[in-house]
Simulated assay, not measured.
Amino acid sequence: MEERMYGVVLWADKQDSKAVIWCEDHGNLAYYSAAEQSAHCGVALDAGDLIQFDMSESRDCRYASNLEHVNSGYAPDIAANLQSKPVERNNIVQFPAGRA
């Protein structure tokens, strides 16, 4: 079953067109690989980009497909902030309000 979701890219490899995405529901991370998405080969992702995507699950993994950029550079320091700071109220990433 697929679900449309927002997420922020935590890590991206431009050369291999792969990414790890923090999902708006704060569940498991989603993985993206352009090699598995022939229609979207060449999507350039950077850490901190806000994207919308179709999320599907297989076993214990989530996969992202049909990516759309919502805001490039939305949270450019997110990966560093998650690594170096304890959870604080002012360290919350706000995702867009509900889906249409």
Results as ranks from 00 to 15, higher is better:
His69Glu: 06
Met5Gln: 12
Asp25Ala: 02
Pro86Asp: 12
Gly98Leu: 09
Asp54Tyr: 03
Ser84Phe: 13
Ala39Lys: 10
Asp60Trp: 03
Glu57Ser: 13
Leu82Trp: 03
Ser33Trp: 09
Ala35Gln: 07
Glu3Leu: 11
Ala39Thr: 11
Ile92Val: 14
Pro76Thr: 06
Asn81Trp: 12
Asp77Ile: 05
Ser58Trp: 03
Tyr6Ala: 10
Pro86Ser: 07
Ala12Pro: 02
His69Pro: 09
Ser58Val: 02
Ala44Met: 11
Gln83Asp: 12
Ala30Val: 10
Gly42His: 07
Asp46Ile: 05
Met5Lys: 06
Leu45Arg: 00
Ala30Asp: 13
Lys18Asn: 06
Ser38His: 10
Gly42Phe: 11
Tyr63Arg: 04
Gln37Val: 05
Ser84Tyr: 13
Val93Trp: 02
Asp60Ala: 07
Tyr32Pro: 01
Val8Asp: 07
Glu36Ser: 15
Pro96Arg: 04
Tyr6His: 15
Glu3Trp: 13
Leu29Ala: 10
Gly7His: 05
Ala79Asp: 01
Asp60Pro: 00
Ser56Gln: 09
Leu50Tyr: 13
Arg99Trp: 15
Cys61Phe: 02
Cys41Gly: 02
Ala12Gly: 08
Ile92Met: 12
Lys18His: 04
Ser56Leu: 10
Gln37Trp: 04
Arg99Tyr: 14
Gly98Val: 08
Ser58Thr: 06
His40Gly: 08
Val87Met: 06
Met5Pro: 00
Arg89Trp: 11
Leu29Tyr: 10
Asp77Met: 03
Gln37Tyr: 01
Ser58Ala: 02
Val8Trp: 05
Ala79His: 00
Lys14Trp: 02
Glu88Gly: 07
Met55Thr: 00
Gly48Leu: 08
Ser17Cys: 15
Ala47Ser: 14
Asn90Cys: 01
Asp46Ala: 14
Val87Ile: 14
Leu10Lys: 04
Ala47Ile: 12
Ser17Ala: 15
Ala30Ser: 12
Asn71Arg: 00
Lys85Val: 13
Met55Ile: 04
Leu50Glu: 12
Ser65Thr: 13
Gly27His: 04
Ser56Glu: 11
Cys61Val: 03
Val20Asn: 01
Met55Gln: 05
